Simulated assay, not measured.
Amino acid sequence: MESITKNRQSPEVLRAMIERAYGAGQVPAGDGWASELGHGWFNVAYRIRLRDGAEVVLKIAPPPAVEVMAYEHGAMSIELATLDLLRSRTAVPVPAVHFADRSRELCDADYFFMPYIDADNLGIIAETLPAAERDALMEQLGAANREINSVRGEHFGPLAGPGHATWRQAFTTMTENVLLDGERRGVDIGWEYDTVRAAVAAHADSLDEVTEACLVEWDLWASNVMVRDGRIVCVIDHERAFYGDPLMEAGFTGTQMSAAFGDPAPFMRGYGHGELTGTERTRRRLYCLYLVLIMVIETVYRGHTDTKQYDWARPRLDEAMALLGHTRR
């Protein structure tokens, strides 16, 4: 996916980064030792073959001059913190961090190295798999996601703070920040921004049911899952994590918008979650609205050269508003 947030670097800078991380003896010579991994939407990532033949991944944060959405500030620091939490407090397979550099001496952004995972991306191969195998992997994902959510925080909201005492405060602030991002760049979301604000406010009391601040990945789609031989071997891309309501996880999105986001049943079986209660459905509808607002608004911040994502997401925003009782006359 092409995006102006991708902070590509020259071979000379990449070699300097490799030397700092692994030493001069691992700096590759010749050509063909680096290739860009093009599946991501935000950071640039390179697959790199070191001089001894070992393969690693280098991930570089966006350039500081490129404006990002409010919730994306410090995304790489969030990812590094989340990886540390998951390695120390769960058995969920995540990449090790070989080296992280926040000095900005070699390039204008943070970066880190991790091992290359020799496995298939579930989001890419899912439709080629037999249904039973695909469902089994989604059940594994549900179980892994539940383990991730078992990590507790001391506040709601961003990992590093400042936090909120209640989930209602945290989520309404998160949503307001997204709306302000859209207004600042004049993004046409198809609705008056204050109408969206009113829809959130009308259902915000449903958020008060959430009293435990759980680690939420939020971006744990199949495309962030690496699989091999019928098993999940690694979960990648942890830069959107926060402390909040586990129902915000991607796997639950289809409970309210299955036509757009797929059948959630295998994920929910693996997670061990039964049918949603009325209040849970309301909360999940608010989370669907939050998701599709970002999907519409981020297209401007990413500098997309085509309208494919916007054209898909805009009708989904209408669907999310309808779930909250707002339809076009």
Rank of each mutant, 00 (worst) to 15 (best):
T5N: 01
V13W: 01
G325L: 08
A75C: 12
V225Y: 03
L220F: 11
P246I: 15
I294A: 10
H304G: 04
A126L: 10
L324S: 09
P162K: 04
E217P: 01
G230F: 15
T299W: 03
D120H: 14
R302T: 13
M114A: 03
I18N: 00
Y193L: 13
P63F: 05
S10T: 15
I297D: 05
G142K: 11
G40Q: 02
H273A: 14
R269Y: 00
Y287R: 02
A34Y: 04
R231V: 00
A144Y: 14
D108R: 05
P11T: 08
Y243H: 03
A65Q: 12
V227S: 11
S77I: 14
R285L: 03
M268P: 01
F112G: 01
D311S: 14
Y22N: 13
D194S: 06
T305C: 07
L58M: 02
V292A: 08
H326Q: 12
L141Q: 01
M1K: 09
G38C: 07
I48A: 11
G53F: 08
D84I: 00
A222E: 09
A136H: 11
R283E: 09
T279A: 11
A165F: 12
E79A: 06
A21R: 02
N224Y: 15
D306P: 05
E12D: 14
A260F: 13
G74R: 04
M114K: 02
C234F: 09
A81F: 02
L106V: 03
P315S: 05
L159E: 07
R87T: 07
L80Y: 07
M69A: 09
R314K: 14
D181R: 09
R87D: 01
F261G: 05
A260D: 13
D108P: 04
E319C: 06
V300Y: 00
E79S: 05
Y116F: 15
P95M: 00
G30K: 07
G182V: 03
R284W: 04
D219C: 08
L215E: 02
S10H: 08
V94W: 01
W191K: 04
R8C: 04
L14M: 14
M248S: 09
A54C: 12
D229M: 05
R102N: 07
C234G: 05
L207P: 02
Y271V: 12
H98E: 04
G161S: 03
A109T: 06
M69N: 07
R269T: 15
P63A: 15
A313E: 07
D101A: 06
T195Y: 00
S35R: 12
V68W: 06
H73Y: 05
R316D: 04
A91M: 05
G303M: 12
Y271Q: 03
L286A: 02
I297Y: 00
A91T: 14
L137A: 07
A34K: 04
R329N: 06
A16M: 13
A75Q: 03
Y310W: 13
I125S: 01
N7L: 11
G161D: 03
G53K: 11
A198W: 00
R104E: 08
E280T: 05
I124T: 15
V233Q: 06
I60T: 10
G123F: 07
G157M: 10
A259R: 13
Q26N: 10
N43D: 11
T90D: 00
